[in-house]
Design a protein around this nucleic acid. Structure first.
Lengths: 171, 171
DNA sequence: TAACAAGGTTCATTCACCGAACCAACCTGT
DNA sequence: ACAGGTTGGTTCGGTGAATGAACCTTGTTA
């Protein structure tokens, strides 16, 4: 493929990783899945992304085993996209890159991340200062001081919640 | 900017991080800089990337304070690109993503990473199993069992070496 | 019967990536 | 003195991906 998504000549794992999650929007989709977003229209709402691009990215992630598409309701058919174990393994790079990006901004963070069992805020490497490494299911997200989006999906995120816990929009 | 490199509506640091290092090839450039590549033509050799794209990416990284362009020789003028502290802070995500990409391949790893002071191989999160977290300068790269590129720059990498130590091509 | 919601597909336009060619300054060999 | 090589780029035409708007389908609710 001349132009596009692969990194044919690369000898290390990074080339492969970028083929799977290196395209525009993809890592933001994975991050929002970690924050509890599961439905097509909720990703749309949070990301301001063209529908065609979102559909293509989700399909790509499903093809590579990072997400799973589940039909959770037969009539009318409705789907949700959920991270697989392979996808959940991306938690640390997602967390660290988010922190890195936050530090090169003048704004304050919209969310902070804590070890759910002891409440301590995670350090720059994603570990708990008291207890060491923390699996993604044990991470609690809390609203931070920084500016937040105001769409319904983002508002549903603005209370303390475990990562991966599905978002339920208020009616 | 309608199309392109920014993620205007995102409220968290990830959007910012992707503006800086999320474009095609960028994270591979940063990774190779960590491996000791410093010169324009050496990046070209390792990456099989169009010159125009490499020039643009390097300029972008310099503009955002991830790399520094240094004139190290006056006549003929020669330049090298070196990671700043901000750039070196990307070590953990680069390492973890590389490992993740490696695990979803059937090939073996071309390189392994060790704590230079005790020799232990780093774990999946980039820490030393004996000593805990390891700064990038204390990481030693060793040739692994997997397939490697055969260009001169890649060959110069195929011996145990500290990260960030500049590559010298054999004549 | 109309309107609405979810989860998409289609399409024209715009823009970024690609690879090949070109360039300029300097050095080295003959 | 001149050819050819090295470094570090820039220019350019062609191609393919991203964008946003419009449209579609199935089913539900008013």
């Amino acid at each position: 493929m001349a132009l596009g998504r692969d990194y044919h000549g690369q000898d290390c794992g990074m080339g492969r990783a970028l083929e799977v999650v290196g395209e525009r929007w993809t890592l933001l989709i994975v991050q929002n899945a970690m924050f509890g977003v599961r439905r097509f229209n909720d990703f749309l709402t949070r990301l301001d992304i063209p529908k065609a691009v979102l559909a293509e990215r989700l399909k790509h992630l499903v093809d590579y085993g990072v997400m799973e598409k589940r039909n959770y309701q037969g009539s009318p058919p409705r789907y949700e996209y959920e991270l697989t174990e392979r996808g959940r393994e991306l938690w640390l790079p997602v967390y660290i890159l988010t922190g890195w990006g936050q530090r090169i901004t003048d704004k304050e963070a919209p969310r902070t991340f804590h070890h759910a069992e002891c409440g301590a805020q995670l350090d720059e490497a994603g570990a708990c200062p008291n207890c060491g490494s923390v699996p993604i299911e044990k991470v609690e997200m809390r609203p931070g001081p920084g500016p937040k989006r105001t769409d319904p999906v983002s508002r549903a995120m603005n209370r303390p919640r475990r990562l991966l816990e599905p978002i339920v929009r208020e009616q």
